[in-house]
Each structure stands twice: as structure tokens, then as C-alpha cells.
Simulated assay, not measured.
Amino acid sequence: MDLFTNTDPKSLNLLPKDGIVHYFGPIMDRRTADEYFQKLLVAIPWEKDVLVMFGKRLETKRKVAWYGDLPFDYTYSNTTKTALPWTQDLFSLKSMVEAAAGETFNSCLLNLYHSGEEGMSWHCDDEKELKKEGTIASVSLGATRKFVFKHKSTKEKVEVLLDHGSLLLMKGTTQTYWLHRLPPTKRVNGPRINLTFRTIVENSQ
């Protein structure tokens, strides 16, 4: 970024075309981020994610949890989860994210990565339950990790480092034209919690 311009980094689109991604950087101070990380690590009823591939049920090392305004069902990787009611900490984080993003969300998928060796493969968040072209707000707590986008047609890639306490917004047609992943790495030893705030369309239930 040019230090001699007044461009707000939150207004910069990280993608060259076919979508909108804004990286806000940290939206809370480090002490607050540390407190949320520790609280969520202990209080959330983490469960291993389950994938069904070629008829086989596979469990991931990564753990997940699913929350929402209502007991929304959310199906991905051929498995369905039912949302738990918000905890006070999650509701506070949601309010913070909504204030920063200028949008509202009714659900959140949490992922716990115990170390850099755990990641997420290429995918897009385009499940039928989600609001079409709705914004997805991704909050990172814990270890800084690389996040990568890849255009479905041109294979162009865009990388961004997600810092402790940071916010990333994926908007518009991003999920239509771009895949994203969290690549595993042996260079990161610490754990990371990722919260992706979403909007479930109620009439999809």
C-alpha cells in the first residue's frame, strides 16, 4: 500500500475480478483477541468434522461447531449440522463483526485448527442454505495463517495472511468464481480458531 495516499485498506478489493474480498486486518486489540481465543477454546463443544466421500465416513483432525439465531440445518460435504444457540461471547463477536462490516448475520461456523499441519482443501461456500451472493465474514483468532483464493477458470491465485483478531469479508460473486483454501504448513505450531459468520435463508429449510 502507498503510505502517501489516503486509501483505506478496508476498501481495497484483493481480487482482480469476478468477486469482492476486503481484508480489514485486526478489528480488536490483542488482549481482547487473546481473551476470546481462550474462552472459545475452552467453552465451545468442539467436535471432529465428518466428511462423506465415495460412501465412506471420514473424520477430520480439525474440529468444528455450528451456531445460529435458530436451529438452522446446514449441509456440506454430505453431512448435516444443526445450529446451537449463541453463547454470550459468540453473540458479542457477531455484534462486533456486524458493526465493522455494516451487515447482519444469522449463523456462524467455527473451525479449530490445532496446528499448522491442519488445513482446509479447495472449496467454495455456495451451499443452497446460504443467501445467494451473501457476505461471509471470517474472523481469525490465534496463529497467523496464509489464506489462498484461486479463480475457477483462469487459475489465478491471490494470497493473504490472516492475523490474530482480524476480519476478512467475501462478498458478491466471490463464491461463484473463486475457490479458497487454508493450506497446511509445518512452519506454524500454534492453534487457530476461525469463525465464519453467514446468512442462512430460512425458506431453504
Rank of each mutant, 00 (worst) to 15 (best):
T87M: 00
S77V: 04
L3C: 12
L84Q: 10
K17W: 06
G19H: 07
F197D: 04
A99G: 09
P16W: 10
V188R: 03
P71I: 07
T5W: 00
P183N: 10
S140G: 10
Q175W: 04
R187P: 00
K10Q: 12
T185H: 03
V188S: 04
A100P: 03
L110G: 01
L41T: 00
P16C: 12
W46C: 03
L179Q: 14
K81W: 08
P85D: 06
R145Y: 05
Q175K: 07
D49P: 06
K146Q: 14
D163N: 11
V148G: 01
D163G: 04
K39H: 03
H180C: 13
D29W: 02
T7Q: 14
S204I: 12
L109Y: 00
T173E: 13
T173N: 12
N189A: 14
G119Q: 06
T7A: 10
R198D: 01
K131V: 15
T144C: 11
A99I: 09
D8E: 11
S115C: 14
V139M: 01
R145L: 06
H114M: 10
K171M: 13
L168P: 09
Y67E: 04
F37Q: 00
R30I: 11
C124N: 15
S166H: 01
I200Y: 02
D69V: 05
Y23H: 13
K132T: 15
A100Q: 15
Y67R: 05
H180W: 08
E159G: 05
V139N: 02
M96T: 15
N78P: 05
R181K: 15
A143D: 00
D125T: 10
L84T: 02
V97H: 02
L12A: 13
I20S: 12
R30W: 00
L169G: 05
H151E: 11
P26F: 04
E133F: 14
V21Q: 13
M96N: 13
Q38R: 06
E103P: 09
K155Q: 14
L51Y: 13
T80N: 06
G134C: 09
K61T: 15
T185M: 04
L169M: 09
K17P: 00
M53L: 15
L169Q: 05
K146F: 02
K155V: 11
N6W: 09
F24P: 00
D126L: 08
D126F: 04
L84M: 13
L110A: 01
W66M: 00
V148P: 02
M28Q: 04
P26M: 04
T144G: 03
G116W: 03
K56L: 14
S166D: 05
K61D: 14
T196G: 03
P184W: 08
L84A: 10
R192K: 10
G55F: 06
L169D: 06
Q88N: 11
K17T: 13
